[in-house]
Structures are given as C-alpha cells and as structure tokens.
Simulated assay, not measured.
Amino acid sequence: MDVTHKHRIRRVGMLLTSTIIAAGLGIFPASPAHAVANSDIVPNGQFRFAVKLTMTGIPTANGGRRNSACSGALIAPQWIVTAGHCFRDFNGVRVERPVADLTTATVGRADLTTDIGHVATIIAVRQSPTTDLALAKLSFPITDIRPLALNHRRPRAGDVLRITGFGSLTSSNPVPSPQLRTGQVTVVTVTEPSVGVTALAPAPDTSACPYDSGAPYFMEHGEGNPTLVSVESGGPSCPHSLEERTSRVDNIAHWIKDIIRG
C-alpha cells in the first residue's frame, strides 16, 4: 500500500471501534478530512445548509461494529450531497444504501451542542457513476433552510471557494469537531471528475481533515446565493498546504437533478 493511499484511508470519516478511534474507512478514490484545519468557527445561523452525518453501527469484516462521521450539504429539501466513500461496505465498495445501523443528518446547526435545526435519518443513497460523490435522502423534507445551489459552469484555476465541515482539526488522533468550521481555498487544477484546491485563508495550510469527507466547496457571489462547486474527497494528512482532491459537481448537475426529481 503506497503512502498516498495510506493518507487517504486515514482521512475517510475515521471509524470508531468501541471506544477506540480507528484510522478511517478508506476511500474511493481518496480519503476524508478533518474539521477544516486552521480555520474559522461558524456561528449558528450562517451556512445553514451545512450537514453533519453521523453513522452508528457500521459492520466490520470481523463481525463487529464501528461508528464514523462525514460532512455534507443540503441541496434540495429532502436530499443532501456528500462523499461517495461515506457509504461503502467493509470491502471498500461504494454502495447505494446506508451502511450503518443508523445514519443521521444534522442540518442547520453549526454548534452541535445546541438544539436548533433538524436531525433526520438517511433512508436512501445514490452513488455518482463518475466521481466520489453521493446523494443521500432524508426521512423528511426540510423547508425552512435554503438548499445550496448547484454550480453549472466549469471551474477555473484561480477561482476562490469556501469549505465548511465538521471534521477534526488535525490528522493526529482526530476527533470530529462539535462546531462547524470554514476556510477558503483556490482552484489549481480541473479534471473531468475532480477539482484540485490549495489553501488560501485564514492560513497557508487551511485544509480539510478526517471527518470532513463530503464537505461542500462553494463559490460565494456577494449578496447572491452561493453555488456548490465540489465536495471533499481526499488529500494529504492535515493541516497541509498541498493539493486537495474534491469531486466536481457541474458536469454531473443533470444527474443530480434527475435523482432529486425522480
């Protein structure tokens, strides 16, 4: 197993076996990230589309159970977007179903110690056929939070994006953050399935960490609505100033809309 793959595995929503935090779920084709290392705290009421996914009782190859977490975003009243590898069996294969005994989505709650927002159960999953991205259906529609709109144009090098996530603050002994955090990155590469980004602010090594898998990267438009450009997929151990790989949205926007409508 090469070093890059090890880093990816370490970041994949980091599994917890009993009370022991294991080194992640692995990835397709990358691994998760933490609560955005070296980032800013988001107060309740801001970026209300942000989602914390909590998975309890994920089956393991030895017959046991583990817990994990990912980040995401509300993109329709009853659908969220996250990383595809957040839903996979113990062989590392992405699947179109919740893999845990219980998977919940906390929406509209930046400070998880409060009780605002909503908590819904994930009842269905749809995997993108081209990239590390999945759509997850909520047990009920959320109508008092504006979903994050989809980006429809090809990202360009130099674009500035914002990330929000509930991941850890470091890859060392990672623990999910109880507070939503945010930072800015710059687009450096664009391929058919992915968007590569590097840190911009508030620090030169602001970066996603374990449990940030599926965190949204979105473009802000002044007073206009932000648009989702990609979601966190994987990268080096955090914090880091290297390139992070994210799963592109604009070229699968029609597929996403078909799932939501259907």
Rank of each mutant, 00 (worst) to 15 (best):
E223Q: 15
P43I: 10
V119E: 08
T103E: 12
L148N: 03
P178D: 01
R65S: 15
A61N: 11
S172Q: 07
P129G: 01
A157S: 15
P147S: 13
I58H: 05
R162P: 00
L102I: 15
F49G: 00
A37E: 03
G72W: 01
R154D: 13
T56K: 12
A253D: 07
A100C: 11
S241E: 08
G262M: 03
D144S: 02
T189F: 14
G183P: 04
S230D: 07
V12F: 10
R94K: 14
V119A: 08
A61G: 10
F49I: 04
Q184E: 09
E223M: 15
L200M: 06
P178Q: 03
S213Y: 03
P147H: 11
M55K: 13
I27L: 13
E220K: 13
T60Y: 08
K6W: 11
G108F: 01
G214R: 02
C70D: 01
L112S: 05
H34G: 14
A37D: 05
T106E: 03
E243V: 15
P155W: 02
A30C: 15
R146E: 13
I58V: 12
Q127W: 04
T19Y: 13
G234I: 05
P98R: 04
I260K: 00
T246F: 13
P202V: 02
D111P: 00
T104F: 03
T121E: 11
N173Q: 08
D40L: 14
M1F: 14
A50S: 08
R153D: 13
V95M: 01
R156C: 11
P236V: 07
G117I: 02
V190N: 10
R153N: 13
Q127C: 06
C238P: 07
Y217W: 14
F218H: 01
K257W: 07
T106D: 02
L200Q: 04
E244S: 11
T60H: 09
I252G: 00
A50K: 04
G224P: 01
I116F: 12
R162T: 07
M1D: 11
T182S: 14
L112N: 05
V42T: 08
C70F: 04
K52E: 10
T17W: 12
R109M: 09
P216V: 00
G224E: 07
P98V: 00
A201I: 01
F49T: 04
L161W: 02
A201G: 05
I75T: 03
F47N: 12
E96M: 05
D2P: 13
T106H: 00
G158E: 05
V229Y: 04
I122P: 01
R66P: 09
N251F: 03
S171K: 00
L135F: 01
A69H: 07
T246R: 10
S139F: 03
